[in-house]
């Protein structure tokens, strides 16, 4: 099963939002269920990144890489990276996987790799 992360498109003005919000940031459409979910693209450009070495106690690894990626449709998102030598501006591709395990709760998110 291919997992997706969704942006939300305003039914009134077409504005895309990620993450989800209740009212459109462009036209302030305040109707209930005002958005259509749209899968986020998996390709994009790495804008910035870091290797974080002080993690919350629920992580069982010594460090994680985080980055902000501008996706093909212009939406930006934060994700984890699995890239040996990240560089600002490099092309990346993402897949949805487990990014955090907190007790019995498993959280999925986007994990980016260097584009081939």
């Amino acid at each position: 099963m291919n997992l997706e992360i969704y942006a939300y498109k305003c039914r009134k003005c077409g504005q895309l939002h990620y993450p989800y919000r209740m009212m459109c940031k462009k036209c302030h459409n305040n109707e209930h269920n005002a958005f259509d979910p749209v899968p986020l693209p998996h390709k994009g450009k790495l804008l910035t990144f870091t290797r974080l070495q002080t993690l919350a106690a629920d992580f069982s690894v010594p460090d994680i890489q985080l980055g902000i990626v501008e996706l093909e449709n212009g939406i930006r998102m934060l994700g984890q990276l699995q890239i040996a030598k990240p560089k600002s501006g490099m092309a990346v591709t993402g897949s949805v996987g487990v990014v955090r395990q907190m007790g019995y709760n498993t959280y999925h998110g986007m994990i980016f790799h260097e584009a081939k």
């Binding site: 919350a56 992580f59 985080l66 934060l78």
Partner: peptide, 29 residues
């Protein structure tokens, strides 16, 4: 670690926090 995680709960719960994001990591990026 607990203090850092407590402050990290102010980040976006779905788009930031679940990834392990902390304030130091946002500052670094």
């Amino acid at each position: 670690l607990e203090a850092t995680d407590f402050v990290a709960t102010l980040t976006h719960p779905i788009a930031e926090y679940i990834y392990g994001t902390t304030l130091p990591s946002l500052a670094a990026m």
